[in-house]
Design a protein around this nucleic acid. Sequence first.
RNA 1: GGGAGCAUAGCUCAGUUGGUUUAGAGCAUCUGCCUUACAAGCAGAGGGUCAUAGGUUCGACUCCUAUUGCUCCCACCA
Length: 879
Amino acid sequence: MEISAKYNPGAVEDKWYAWWLENNFFHSEPDDREPYTIVIPPPNVTGVLHMGHMMNNTLQDVLIRRARMLGKNACWVPGTDHASIATETKVVNRLKERGVEKSSLSRDEFLKEAWKWKEEHGGIILEQLKKLGASCDWERTKFTMDEGLSQSVLNTFVYFYKKGLIYRGIRMVNWDPVGHTAVSDEEVIHKETKSKLYYLRYFISENGKATDNYIVIATTRPETIMADVAVCINPNDERYLHLKGKHILIPLINREIPIIQDEYVTMDFGTGCLKVTPAHDINDYEIGLRHKLPVIDIIDDNGALNEKATILIGEDRFVARKKIVKMLEESGNLEKVEDYTSPVGHSERTDAVIEPKLSMQWFLKMDELAKKALESVVSERVKLIPDRFTNTYKHWMEEVRDWCISRQLWWGHRIPAYYLPNGDYVVEATFEEALAAAQKIDPKIKAGDLKQDEDVLDTWFSSWLWPISVFDPDKAGNPEREPNADLAYYYPTNDLVTAPDILFFWVARMIMAGDEFTGKEPFANVYLTGIVRDKQGRKMSKTLGNSPDPLELIAKYGADAVRIGLLLCTSAGNDTFYDESQIEQGRNFCNKIWNAFRLTQGWEVDDTLQTPENAKIATRWMENKLNKSIEIINDHFSKFRISDATMTVYKLFWDDFCAWYLEAVKPAFGEKIDKYSYDKTIDYLDSLLKLLHPFMPFITEELWQTLKQRAEGETIMLSSMPQPKAYDEKILSDFSFAIETVMNIRNIRQSKGISPKERLSLYVKGSYNCEVSSLIMKMANTESLVVLDEFDQSAQGVNFMSGTTEFFIPIEINQEEEKKKIVAEIERYTNFLTSVKKKLSNQKFVESAPPKVVELERKKESDATEKLKNLNEQLQRFK
RNA sequence: GGGAGCAUAGCUCAGUUGGUUUAGAGCAUCUGCCUUACAAGCAGAGGGUCAUAGGUUCGACUCCUAUUGCUCCCACCA
């Protein structure tokens, strides 16, 4: 059989993925086995796969595939999120490209467009996951706006409303003038922004007329002066005591406003005078409440000044700022301007500068929910990995404010509140129930009189139900209800793999919903991945164009290669610096596996052959090495050290299996292999492929299928993961000794320019009875290994030591060079011995250090003494 | 402004109750090899005063304090 020297992933991957699907291997139904469940963090329905998803979903697939092979009933539920604001923005933009403004459409017309968009682009990201090899149970694919899931959102809303946790009210919210919606506190990103601090003169008035006296007020937002309703000073500020009870005039518009006193004002900041603008600043709003001041809202939903501003009407707030500064300068109200840097809130989605704005919104009370969710993590019923995120989590849960859950958008779950003509409202999950409730208030109400709230709910108000609603949509919002069979079996899920930036948006809230509706935390472990960054440390983003297209990478290197590349360089909670060379490494590894397989395929077995001694040693060692490695891998997994587990398998395969084991058992060119060695090799390869499968599903299936005769429909996916058996450290250390010796000899060859093909003689001194001689001979290509009591002092050659065993190779050498080396070695060991001796002569060390440690130092001492003795003997030759 | 985290080889990172470490790995680098599985490979080598300064200890990469530099989270000083 002719096999290519290079592994070709393309055809292999598509073939096996299709076959897995055909056989329904990813599908899970409740049964007697222990379940292992992961729900996918649902990507935005219209999103495209990026490197973060790749990392995230590779990790999930590794966990799921491993669990499946450990005999658990593994279920990975995929799905997508409707991503209210993100999707709506995209749809609005697409309409704009066609020259259609959203405002020209009715709600229904717009939603039709949005659904059309969803149908066209909705599946893309899930199809991309298939290319990665994700073994999701596609039959269970969910969408947060599916009928059932939508119902659970509405039920949840009604549930919390009736429980008194959801309320409606006018509050200062974060207004996004570009997205035209309120956003939650968590969706506001504060950025240090350069601006100016304007010092404005406000003239003091008497009987409504300006005097010559003025006070100076510093502001960053001069365009809001028309919304001023007072000027505030600190009651303890002696500089301004004489102003108590007086009034001043707002520049340009000359409206009279009072001077008030409030402890809030910092005396040593700015001028110690604060203009109070309740409509456009959260603090001013609170001062306004305390002093019962009116609210004048001069900025409209687009961020432009409205008619209440009386001047600059219709101008955008930033344009208005420039213009008003000029006007103030001309009118003599501008004292000075200073450069100033302050944090300014930006919308996470649209990057627009957030406008604090008073508006009517729906809120969910958080304190009670947060308290329980905090307890879930503190008690470690939910473990955050790495656990340092617990601190951040705690902090957030203790400081949490009520959640603004309404959004002024159309794409999403419409708030199930229905208004009566008189302004009263009822909250019910369906229109029929709402009508009935409304008729209780007023029997004359007809269906046409009820008007549903225009707003939709925050996206997270649906995704926080995800671990429940994907299994049992009726359970969310109905804590009393018996869970259905799926929920009872799969919930609580096991591990959640997600990015730390949505720890509060999503993870914390899922814990809240889980506790509220099921009384259980929705998952046991939260594995927080790092953010994938480019070489310069920038976050991968579409706008920067620094994110490679994952599908192109897969096409170029193969999915297995991409997975390994990502896995090798990730650790929980730490950002990952992506570089294509990592993927290359993955590809090279695939090729290595491919070629190891190729080698074994080329072997011809001869049943009559005896197993050579070196092959016996190698198989015995490989067996033990394999068991020890499996133990280490299991340990890494138990601690979610996924990249360490990956590296352990990587080295097990490449270094131990290929570089040592295969080289040791490999028959000489043209010769056949004995049956025992062959069978063992195939068995090891079988185990290794299984160990590798969760990390690299495709190549392992491809090779596993051809390695042995398999039954119809048999797959590595459902084979059982090798478990560690006892291993013998003595065998491992004997082999290490052989490796050390071989490497020493190779080193000598290299430094002396001796070809690996040239056979050498090897002598060993003293009580040498190591069992690995034949292995050393084969791997180091020596024709003999002779044990001597003493080396011939007159012979020319090189001495070296493996551990404390002394070897000698008779070869031509450069006397001076050799001598220098030995002298250098002697110096090194002398220094070492001195430090060890010093330690051992320290009474306190010997007394207080554990015996094991002291013993070790003694061993170091005797070894070093032995080595020095040997080295000095060697030196004698050159004298 | 408050809080958290990080700083170990050119790069990315391990280092798991302070002592089996004279600080490891992978990648990259350098040298020699197209050896009949693999040049996407083989063999070998070099490279670190563990950010800085103190302290605790018989012993510190590991614990404490301070400093410096990055990162993240939270926060209403106009």
